[in-house]
């Protein structure tokens, strides 16, 4: 983790997607879309339902593969064939359903599927866990992000929606070395809890990550995003700097009016 700091300090594009095209049978979900995300900025990916934003992030996070087009990380063309591939490449995704394990603690959730363990010559599943180290790092990260949990060692089952969201976002920050993708991170939250998550996103950005944010909330877009890309029916229909003044323009672009 420590060796990646110099990557985050540059503002060159971390992620470049060019000519992205994806078909599902007869449906053209993405049609020759270009996007870029730079270190230290939040890119808002906007669009109505079915516009192609979910397809786009699923292709970047390895759930789907592009039919045509190219994904470059730090300028290097990279094939992302699985979620595991994406994470190895430094891309973390906070899924809309959070992908948290209710029966595990925050630290167990943080490291699920990539536990710190020994000895290295065994396959991962047969190794022994370094539980204390995982707990230590988790506590550090939660502390750094100012996420306060009443019982950090309890399972996430009993946590509130906002705390769960915070744990999921914090998990992404532990491992993100290049890019964090958040899919509607505030959709299910109350005002105060959403606030907390927005602060977390800002912090992620300030730590030098490129952040791609999918949301329907225009207030959040103008507050956080330094660029917004609007998709409609699989095509990119606009890219602009979102401000309070052009909020209306953004909304018209999204709905195509």
């Amino acid at each position: 983790m420590s060796g990646s700091m110099e990557l985050k300090s540059s503002s060159a594009p971390v992620l470049t997607v060019q000519h992205a095209t994806k078909r599902f049978g007869p449906v053209l979900a993405l049609d020759d879309v270009d996007i870029q995300a730079c270190a230290g900025e939040v890119l808002a990916l906007l669009g109505d339902n079915g516009a192609g934003k979910s397809t786009m992030i699923k292709c970047i996070s390895g759930v789907h593969q592009l039919d045509e087009g190219e994904i470059c990380l730090n300028g290097v063309p990279t094939a992302i064939r699985s979620p595991g591939n994406a994470r190895e490449a430094g891309i973390e995704t906070v899924y809309q359903d959070l992908a948290l394990f209710d029966n595990l603690t925050p630290s167990q959730n943080f490291y699920a599927g990539r536990e710190l363990s020994y000895p290295a010559w065994l396959p991962l599943g047969l190794r022994f866990m370094k539980s204390r180290e995982m707990e230590r790092v988790t506590a550090e990260v939660l502390n750094r992000l100012r996420v306060i949990l009443p019982k950090p060692d309890a399972t996430v089952a009993l946590m509130s929606g906002g705390q769960r969201q915070a744990v999921a976002v914090a998990r992404a920050t532990v491992f993100a070395r290049k890019l964090v993708i958040l899919d509607e991170p505030t959709a299910a939250l109350g005002l105060r809890e959403a606030r907390k998550v927005l602060d977390l996103i800002a912090q992620l950005r300030d730590e030098g990550n490129a952040v791609i944010l999918i949301t329907h909330n225009m207030e959040h877009v103008t507050e956080l995003a330094s660029r917004a890309i609007v998709l409609r029916q699989g095509r990119k229909v606009g890219e602009l700097l979102p401000t309070k003044e052009n909020q209306q323009e953004l909304v018209s672009m999204i709905v195509g009016a």
Partner: peptide, 10 residues
């Protein structure tokens, strides 16, 4: 605990 999430987490 959550089979779908286990897949997503690799």
């Amino acid at each position: 605990g959550r089979p779908e999430a286990a897949v997503q987490m690799g």
